[in-house]
Design a protein around this nucleic acid. Structure first.
Lengths: 149, 149
DNA sequence: CCAAAATAGGACTAAAATCATCCGTAATGT
DNA sequence: ACATTACGGATGATTTTAGTCCTATTTTGG
């Protein structure tokens, strides 16, 4: 459907939430689940994938939970999405050379390449640190407009 | 999966094929199906959708078939895809305002807006006439390189 | 050592989307 | 009338999506 799935959406919420917390202190899955409105048992699977892909670190037992495995400045939106959705390919013909045998003569193929390049540009151009900053700016504006009322 | 479905892919092939034929003379679904490698019975459904959305005109009976309903210069790639896949929304939060109640404070929302804008730019910037021209250019290059061998 | 606290991971499932096929109906030109 | 061609509805297999649930396994505070 050419649309992000919940997996991707939830992964972004989770990683962004971790990025917004003081680093080092593990965050419980319950806290992520409740604050980000993601079913806990489902989120559990997503967190596992994020751990496997090396974006998030986990610790079991008391004082356990999840933290970012790397600084928020180094984690992009695209990376986070691809960690749980697999590599983004807007069309099957972009999966790899030869996947679609019409590549050689198909005039649409280069258009998809360009479209994908532009999309990647946007998603790779935003780090979790950027998004935390953006979020804080939005909060600031919301507070101001509430004061005016 | 953030990927075009066969519906979209097949629709593009069909419309592009019609655009490459001399306008006015109806093309049989069998010919489209075989040349574009799309199952005929499946293609039938897609052609119906293209007719309903006003991109293609159909005629039944002898000398029937399909033609473009409008000049190829006026039909974009995006239009063709959306005719069979519905409007493109890279994320559910882009479907309409209020679809995702986190819009107001979600710092990721504007990124999706931008990503979608960029994608639309590319897909809307290519008309079927453009693609036919591109295809001919590719054919030309292929012939030349074959001659060199 | 042990119990409590957490995540890990496997099995399972309902619903929807995807990718089709088949067949009777309707229209159209000769 | 009749051959030809698209229309439209019903049906279905397979895959993906979006979860739930339950049992392990790890960790640590007491």
């Amino acid at each position: 459907m050419l649309q992000l799935t919940r997996n991707g959406e939830y992964a972004v919420r989770a990683v962004l939430f971790l990025a917004s917390r003081p680093p080092g202190r593990p965050v419980l899955i319950t806290e992520i689940s409740e604050s980000q409105e993601v079913p806990k048992s489902y989120l559990s699977k997503i967190m596992q994938q994020l751990v496997h892909s090396g974006l998030v670190r986990s610790r079991r037992g008391i004082n356990g939970g999840f933290t970012l495995a790397r600084p928020a400045e180094s984690i992009t939106l695209k990376e986070t999405i691809e960690a749980v959705e697999g590599p983004i390919h807007l069309n099957v013909c972009l999966i790899r050379k030869g996947e679609c045998h019409r590549d050689d003569f198909c005039p649409v193929h280069p258009v998809w390449q360009e479209a994908q390049r532009r999309l990647s540009e946007v998603l790779d151009g935003k780090t979790m640190a950027d998004l935390v900053r953006d979020g804080e700016a939005i909060q600031g504006r919301l507070k101001k407009s509430r004061r005016k009322r």
